[in-house]
Design a binder for these strands. Structure first.
Lengths: 208, 208
DNA sequence: TCAAAATATGAGGAGAACTCATGTTAACTC
DNA sequence: GAGTTAACATGAGTTCTCCTCATATTTTGA
């Protein structure tokens, strides 16, 4: 974001822009999304849009971040309310909540937490592991958070490579669930089931 | 594509446009890719571009299809040249070839076989399984081809849900490998290894 | 040889992205 | 509560991309 809204009116306007962005994503998709239409629907002049967002990407990134925070909040609440006894139950819970948000949260089907990558990998840094460490990717943030939740709640020992395993699991699950929702508006139930199986199988190496 | 090139000159031009598209994708990414620049580099007038491609998406889709065919050819050759004894070897081979193409084929890092989805899921068809059946997605084509290759070569019985399992495996592997190449220009070796593990674990249910 | 089909071409219309100069409102200090 | 500063508002206009279309040329095949 170009500037963070400090006063209440502009905060509301930014929220409205994000809301309308999400709804438009559902209606027309990412490619056909226009800043002008977002501004028009949110009832703000186009100039105001560019006060806060540098461009279309910036808008979508902000939405992804909002989605990310909403998801983590929901997960935390549910885990706290009904702590799962087994880590496999935690996997189900986490996936079910994701599916629920896919169904109910506008725009989530198109962007969830993911970037829409404009350029391949950004500037190619020499430091191999650097990019993952810096958590430039929202999926990495999700993975880290889920890992600490599972470690905390279930008292699993944080083994070697567990961090990476969670990133892999999140990335894979995200892809399969995206597929499930491309195949079926409500999410193909069989594919959702397969997604759970995929994650359980894979993580059992690291959590057993 | 709007029209298929029938004469040699135009066939060469279309190839050149695809080549330049691929190189540009590596240089500037999908969002910054312009039809004008592709045409300029391929040394064809912009009008000629639109003789063959309806729009930018169409261009990228054609490139993805070319990638798909190249990949399937390579896989078939390698499987024929050195038939793997075990299906897990076949998984390694298939992933290694994919990684090799990511490293060496221009543009493959950005688009491989995948669409860049403009709108969410296209027209929402009521027939649940319809979209997968029609193989609108290139990853589904890859999955089907891989499945028949494995079934043929290794004499595995085509069990229930195997088709779906391959689609899931391809989608998940694609996502993890994309991550591997975002994290590291040559593909993070650890993530590539994890990708293989993920696929082997998951498919063992269906191939054992 | 000649008609039909395929291909070539680039100026220009349509419209999206984004800027900027100028005016207004809120917040904070003394 | 006057004054200063920082945040915010605005939309016509510039730039750039997408894509079309009328017209001209080349290739094909009977």
């Amino acid at each position: 974001m170009r500037r963070r809204p400090a006063q209440r009116r502009s905060q509301e306007r930014v929220e409205r822009m994000l809301d309308e962005c999400a709804r438009l994503l559902d209606e027309v998709g990412y490619a056909a999304l226009t800043t002008k239409e977002v501004a028009r629907r949110a009832e703000v002049p186009i100039g105001t849009f560019y006060q806060f967002f540098t461009d279309k990407q910036s808008l979508v990134r902000a939405l992804a971040l909002r989605n990310l925070e909403a998801y983590l909040d929901r997960i935390s609440s549910r885990l706290a309310a009904a702590p799962p006894s087994d880590w496999t139950d935690a996997v189900d819970l986490v996936i079910d909540e994701f599916v629920l948000m896919k169904r109910t949260t506008p725009g989530f089907g198109v962007v969830d937490f993911g970037e829409v990558y404009a350029a391949p990998g950004g500037p190619a840094l020499p430091g191999t592991q650097r990019m993952l460490d810096e958590a430039l990717e929202n999926n990495v943030i999700v993975a880290d958070r889920l890992r600490s939740l599972v470690v905390e709640l279930l008292g699993v020992a944080p083994g070697e490579g567990m961090s990476r395993a969670f990133v892999v699991a999140v990335e894979a699950a995200d892809a399969v669930l995206k597929l499930a929702f491309r195949a079926h508006p409500e999410g193909d139930p069989d594919l959702i089931a397969e997604c759970k199986r995929l994650v359980r199988r894979y993580l059992s190496d690291h959590l057993a």
